[in-house]
């Protein structure tokens, strides 16, 4: 087993049958002069669930938010390296960040449904895209809510305010919203951290259902969760990607000592 700290990533990720969708190449990121990511390189396989794990402050959320450029909101941000979606560098100045975000859905730590009806929440991405066709919108509401395993619970009260749902339902609604516009990538930033175990179980089942249909990247603090839902797992520490590999290997037989210490709960 290797010690960490030589700056290199130990890489043994499982290859997907359809190849990779996202390629991160030597990606570094600074928040107003303070470096948060150090030369991260990895590939995200198409149709796989990729988990990002690591102790607090290791940069996994930063990496996730770099993928749909949510970090752009922060003043004084600087990046180096490339993130390729297909063969487009998303940090290329010619890329429209709004169009980019339309290709990616995102689910946040805390459920953040908008203060409008359940249906209006689901079709929000289509609405801002200018879709006005009633039949398309109605179909989308049903498809997205079915995919998010929420349809049966809310089909009779689609016009009710979304804020009246329970926390777990709200989070599934946010997932429905994230997949309403049929994105290429679904980014999940600790989607279960504000939920109780039952709701967490439902979300995990849902992620399992969505596997194959969407390429999912999930940030989680919960190692069991990562082990349960993901195909590949990336372990990050202090802004660097330490080890990225097949989930079963990472959790049973990691190649780096630091990874083993983390997954066995020695620190974190």
């Amino acid at each position: 087993m290797r010690e960490s700290g030589n700056g290199e990533t130990v890489y043994h990720a499982k290859q997907g049958p359809e190849g990779s969708l996202l390629t991160i190449e030597d990606f570094s990121l600074w928040y107003s002069g303070k470096q948060a990511l150090f030369d991260v390189s990895m590939q995200v396989e198409k149709g796989f669930v990729t988990a990002l794990i690591g102790p607090s402050g290791c940069g996994k959320s930063t990496l996730l938010r770099a993928i749909n450029r949510m970090n752009d909101l922060i003043a004084g941000l600087r990046t180096r390296g490339r993130i390729l979606l297909g063969d487009t560098d998303i940090y290329n100045p010619s890329v429209d960040v709004i169009a980019l975000r339309k290709a990616m859905g995102m689910v946040f730590q805390k459920p953040n449904p908008f203060p409008m009806s359940i249906a209006a929440n689901v079709i929000y991405p289509l609405r801002v895209d200018g879709v006005r066709d009633k039949s398309i919108l109605r179909e989308t509401v049903e498809r997205a809510l079915r995919q998010a395993a929420l349809w049966d619970e809310v089909k009779d009260r689609l016009q009710d305010n979304a804020l009246g749902l329970s926390g777990g339902q709200q989070q599934r609604l946010c997932i429905a919203r994230a997949i309403a516009a049929d994105p290429d990538v679904l980014l999940m930033d600790e989607p279960c951290s504000a939920l109780d175990p039952v709701a967490t179980g439902k979300i995990e089942d849902l992620i399992d259902d969505l596997r194959g249909r969407y390429t999912i990247i999930i940030v989680t603090h919960n190692m069991q969760q990562a082990a349960r839902v993901s195909d590949n797992t990336a372990f990050m520490y202090l802004g660097a990607l330490i080890e990225c590999g097949e989930t079963s290997t990472i959790f049973t037989n990691p190649k780096v000592k630091k990874t083993m210490e983390y997954v066995t709960g020695r620190f974190g």
Binding site: N68, M106, P125, R127, V128
Partner: peptide, 23 residues
């Protein structure tokens, strides 16, 4: 989180303000 949610849906800043922030 509301603004981020809207922006992540591909809304522009103005759309976010109009549909989410102002109401």
């Amino acid at each position: 989180s509301m603004r981020e949610g809207s922006l992540a849906c591909g809304a522009s800043k103005w759309q976010t303000i109009k549909h989410i922030v102002l109401p």
